[in-house]
């Protein structure tokens, strides 16, 4: 081991230790006695020991590309273990979900479905926006999709989307609320959300496919992982943004935590939660093409065909349909979000 690498390693450990010590000192619980020093020393050792071990390993002639921390092997092991333990029940669940989605899809494919559904969405658009242009736009989008003979894949995509968004809301909303109520939960969730948003989606497609097999269920889970963060973040943000004095007022009248949450915080956070839902839906649509690679049928698959067969037209009309679907869902959710803003802000 040469002196310079040891020196730089020690310096590195000292800096990390010092930062940890300084951070610990600001915490009331850790400031007592020598606890902050212990935290600092611990952090320094975490850097120093593997570092020295690695240096030693390297200098004693091992290959440069031998990993010192074999994280990849651990992850493989973990997935294998999971597969062994929960593979069967997951398979059951998979079948059940696929059956449900399939039922939904089959209904949407009926010839009667398309005028009904176009009418339904047009009605919802009118209810949400009370805007003639938006309503007519929605109707035209559906007519265009139908007339391009993409009704079936569009419905496949829409049903998968609906299930994914449903699952996203079922998990995302409580997580966002949890985050808003506890700073500790928030500090745990934030890096996880960062990871969910920055990790390339192919990375988690691998274990998802291993665990769930190809098909719709894997598509739902992958879509959820990709689409949930905005809903979770905006739920948390919306609740935290509720005016401090309004919260004080509720507390001063003796409201319990649940009363505050359900009577005050969530209703007042609804515009932000709607914005989160809107973002999640857009993200889910962005996932459609990637999901097609793990066997999800629908518009994404059409794009994939276009790519494989070198038919730019096929790709274009499928892509256009995705965009149209996105615009329809965006306008509808945004209009509801705007409607919720009335009587949720106070002017002085």
């Amino acid at each position: 081991m040469d002196a310079s690498s040891i020196f730089s390693l020690v310096l590195c450990a000292a800096i990390v230790g010092w930062i940890a010590w300084a951070a610990a000192r600001r915490h009331e619980a850790l400031a007592e006695g020598y606890r902050a020093h212990a935290v600092g020393a611990g952090a320094a050792l975490v850097v120093l020991v593997p570092g020295l071990a690695g240096l030693w390993k390297f200098l004693t002639g091992l290959e440069f590309d031998t990993s010192i921390i074999p994280l990849d092997v651990w992850v493989d092991g973990a997935v294998d273990w999971l597969l062994l333990k929960v593979g069967d029940p997951l398979d059951q669940l998979n079948r059940w979900v696929v059956h449900k989605i399939g039922f939904f899809e089959r209904f949407l494919h009926q010839s009667i479905a398309w005028p009904l559904l176009t009418l339904l969405f047009t009605g919802v658009a009118w209810h949400a926006s009370r805007n003639f242009v938006v309503t007519v736009g929605v109707a035209c989008a559906f007519l265009l999709i139908w007339s391009m003979a993409l009704w079936k894949p569009t419905m496949q995509t829409l049903s998968l989307m609906s299930v994914s968004i449903l699952v996203t809301v079922v998990f995302g909303l409580p997580l966002g609320i949890l985050m808003s109520q506890s700073d500790r939960a928030r500090s745990i969730m934030l890096p996880i959300l960062d990871m969910m948003q920055t990790m390339p989606s192919f990375v988690y497609l691998i274990p998802v496919v291993m665990l769930l097999g190809l098909g719709n269920f894997a598509g739902v889970i992958a879509t959820m992982i990709y689409a949930a963060p905005p809903l979770i973040r905006l739920t948390d943000l919306g609740i935290r943004l509720v005016d401090k004095e309004v919260m004080e007022a509720a507390t001063s009248f003796g409201a319990s935590r649940w009363q505050k949450l359900f009577n005050i915080q969530i209703p007042l956070a609804l515009p932000n939660i709607m914005a989160g839902l809107n973002q999640s839906i857009m993200m889910a649509l962005a996932m459609v093409v990637i999901a097609s690679m793990i066997g999800v049928r629908g518009l994404g698959q059409e794009v994939l065909f276009g790519l494989q067969r070198q038919e730019p037209g096929t790709g274009f009309i499928a892509g256009l349909s995705i965009v149209l679907l996105a615009i329809v869902l965006d306008r509808i959710t945004q209009s509801y979000g705007r409607r919720m803003e009335t009587h949720r802000t106070v002017s002085h």
Binding site: E245, V246, A250, I264, L268, T345, H348
Partner: peptide, 9 residues
């Protein structure tokens, strides 16, 4: 409260 603290909804 100073800024009233009313529940806007």
């Amino acid at each position: 409260f100073q800024r009233f603290g009313l529940f806007p909804h």
